[in-house]
Amino acid sequence: MIEVRGISKRYGNLQAVDNLSITIEKGHIFGLLGPNGAGKSTTISMMCGLINPDQGQVLLNGNAPGIKETKHKIGLIPQSIALYEELTALDNLSFFADLYNLPASQKAERMEWSLAFVGLQDRAKDAVQDFSGGMKRRLNLAASLLHDPEFIFMDEPTAGVDPQSRNKLFESVFELKALGKTIIYTTHYMEEAEKLCDRVGVVDKGQLLALGTVDELIEQYGGESRVHIKSEQGEESFMTANPVNDLMTRLKGLTTVENLSLQRPNLETVFLNLTGKQLRD
């Protein structure tokens, strides 16, 4: 379990994170959703012990993230491709495995597993600089799994990734969840948060604006659904909190319906309603 208790971080005049508190259950995928500059990376950096909060506390299974025992349980997939591009995939994995002091037999086994997990076993001996962007992202993930961490922090792992690699990455996230890992996933793509996350925290300007499952957030902050009907009587659009009932009522008087659409609220509208701006502004 991860407990984040009132953490804050300031850089000069910028309040990057402001009194943020979250609890994440073991085996959950938790999403931090917010636009660029919302404070997601700073939050994740404090959660995994890369930087110290000015105030507050982070506990991973009751321990601070900076201590050696906890570090063995943390896997970080940084936003950038944090690999040595001149080296081969194997050389990269071998180096990062050595940092975790894995015994030789376990090291070979984990390297093989990690490469297979991200589907790169055929490219093990190729230099990373010859990989596509998506392959680099997958190897970036593999390098973080060598020591079999319990907590996996993924900082915008799909940035600049092609759809095929993105889908492969989504599969990997679900597989990791199935293995009992606790995953913290930051993104500014609401589709990813909706698809992957058990719970989502919406952040903006360093503050946690809302917290809950996707359905809870939509129900609480999403507002009404938009219904659009095109019939022999013309076109009509209306907002409703109960689209099914309202639609049934409207359709009773019509003989021909040319077009009918129902736009339910989503995390985008949640964010819009919470901040007054689009998620990708």
């Binding site: 950096s45 995994c48 890369l50 050696k68 063995h72 970080l76 940084p78 491709i81 690999l83 975790y100």
Partner: peptide, 13 residues
């Protein structure tokens, strides 16, 4: 700049 220093910092060293 690459971010590998973060990987090193997160490791138990």
């Amino acid at each position: 700049t690459l971010g590998t220093l973060d990987r090193l910092a997160i490791a138990p060293i």
